[in-house]
Nucleic acid binder design. Structure first.
Lengths: 344, 344
DNA sequence: TGTTAGCACTCGATGCCTGTGAGTGCTAAC
DNA sequence: GTTAGCACTCACAGGCATCGAGTGCTAACA
């Protein structure tokens, strides 16, 4: 038995109806609501075929059919191939970013908000993953008589700053002098290289031991924390609006997964760097998400590194709409966060 | 009719049992499980009195009684008066903060995590609210040939930094010179005062118009964003574990409230600055929280400003335990974030 | 040969009834 | 003032009949 064009149309109708209602759809519904010019009996035969082909599931014998993961897969694949990703939300999204937000973390938080509002699903936004940023400037700023702020600028932006303790009291000028020397020594190195270089510097620039030692610790920390990117999650409670999660236990599992940020980041990031990824139900590889789908897209941050945005919803997701929104949002984020390097 | 010591003991037993089980408690249960030396019939009479006094509610005639908000109020008040807030979690909490975390936002995020894990309720941690910080240092750090990072240090710590555009190309030394001048001019001022001073400076230090103008904008922004503090929420899904929220609609309302950060911050912060606040059910003033209680405590940040930590759970909360944990956590945060100024 | 009408059958959902048991309130006796 | 006893209430669970949406199959039709 083969898939033909009519089967395809019927499957499409079933998916449409099921995505809309969330209720198993019967042959009668299809023949009436979507006028195919076919009787329910014929549809029934076709549905039976589709089930045998693995595109439909039947919760129990006297219920209608629901699309299987395989059906969604087929649907999404044709969607992606024919490239029917609309562009019409562009203005909507742009409007949401009208204010003056430049701070990367604010943009990301905001994006997650907007994304979840527009899709009505759960949205996750991951900042670009710092590959191997190279040091550009190291600067110490006095905070109190005993502490100073370290600011490290790399070619990919600013590393999160931190307050370190300085031993003997130093004025602003002394700190600046040290900063200049350090910048001279370390510029162009990756964080890791800088870490390796530090011991040598400590022995050479004696007299400033404490500062340098603290700095060393900071670099080490920064090297690690640099790997775990910033992440924002929006609309976690949206999932509760769908009957798939009216079971409280399921909902709790899902929500607590949303709270374990590390795990969630791994899931969203996935392992491939394609511009769009759609993982349906079991394809997610996450037990808590067997009846969820994850749709992700990438955007370019500064220096062309890839950031990820994703939407998590029930398998019966409005894929087409979600894809188009993700597409637009990705462009918007590339505009706001990356751009510079590519446009010039 | 008056409250006497026996009524008090019975009420206590009822609260204990209800907090434990979440099921309306009957007279028989009390007379058996908590040996009062009284028959169920006597308890029954007393319970009837307690209901008339407004301390007990009866879901329906043949069910047991549940404590009213008034009962919890009484319970919590005596708890607070007799000061029976235990100290035994101290070590547990301290252990959770063993790592090297100094960055304020990390501490806050982490605290919310720990707090929700220990209490099994939802935890909210608010950073100290910036009263009127005074400028200490202004420093510009080169990022690219066209942009620089502004770092502003106040007596209460570092203001979030931001990248601004600089007009004509400037090297590190020029930027440092400008920084020195600015620091000299603005030191000791509040953000607002600094903003007011800027126009005068712009006209005086001509040649650096663009930098100063950008800086002006940044100060203005900072002045506003300084008001809204950092907030971390942990364990939002914990609430789903309690039968009070097995209704999905209720749960969704609650969770979406947890997501609207501004509102949540207002609720947690409340309007008083007491070291402990307990708001029970309707006392919260939030419709979504009629069967929740909010327990908050304050801690001191740098410069003695008040930060707030809070726990949100069902009205039948383990108040005693929560209070003791909040107490310990408050001290810990004061240690980590404030301290300095007070210990010296 | 594909399509359709008809029909028996399945099975979850709904609603009704009933029994059960936890719990109460009241009364009378101690 | 306390307790034993008893009638009463009411949520809840189990059993049962009913309903209806939907299927699969067969036979007739174009």
């Amino acid at each position: 038995m083969e898939m033909d064009e009519r089967k395809m149309r019927i499957l499409q109708a079933i998916i449409d109806d099921y995505v809309l209602t969330g209720v198993p759809v019967g042959s009668r519904t299809i023949s009436r609501k979507y006028d195919m010019g076919l009787s329910s009996a014929t549809i029934r035969n076709e549905m039976s075929d589709l089930e045998e082909l693995g595109f439909l599931d039947q919760p129990h014998v006297s219920a209608g059919r629901i699309p299987s993961a395989k059906a969604y897969r087929l649907y999404v694949d044709t969607l992606l191939q024919t490239g029917k990703i609309r562009d019409d939300n562009e203005e909507t999204i742009r409007r949401h970013f009208s204010g003056r937000i430049h701070q990367m973390e604010d943009v990301i938080d905001h994006a997650a908000q907007v994304l979840s509002t527009l899709t009505r699903y759960t949205a996750v936004v991951l900042s670009p993953k710092g590959a191997q940023p190279r040091l550009q400037t190291v600067q110490l700023v006095p905070v109190s008589s005993e502490t100073a702020l370290v600011v490290i600028v790399t070619d990919m932006g600013v590393i999160r700053d931190s307050v370190i303790r300085i031993g003997n009291q130093m004025d602003s000028d002394t700190l600046y002098a040290i900063s200049r020397t350090l910048t001279g020594e370390l510029r162009g190195m990756t964080l890791q290289e800088a870490c390796e270089r530090m011991p040598a510097l400590i022995s050479r620039m004696y007299g400033n031991d404490e500062v340098l030692r603290e700095l060393y610790g900071f670099l080490n920390e920064g090297q690690q924390s640099n790997q775990r990117a910033h992440m924002a999650v929006g609309g976690t409670s949206n999932i509760l609006a769908y009957p798939e999660y009216s079971d409280v236990d399921k909902a709790r599992n899902f929500l607590s997964l949303m709270e374990t940020r590390d795990k969630l980041a791994d899931i969203i990031r996935g392992n491939n760097e394609m511009s769009f990824t759609v993982r349906i139900g079991p394809e997610t590889g996450v037990p808590e998400m067997v009846d969820c789908s994850i749709v992700t897209a990438t955007y370019s941050g500064r220096g062309g590194q890839q950031g990820t945005i994703g939407v998590i919803g029930p398998t019966r997701m409005r894929y087409s709409s979600v894809l188009s929104i993700l597409n637009m949002m990705g462009r918007q984020l590339t505009d706001l966060l990356g751009g510079e390097d590519e446009n010039k």
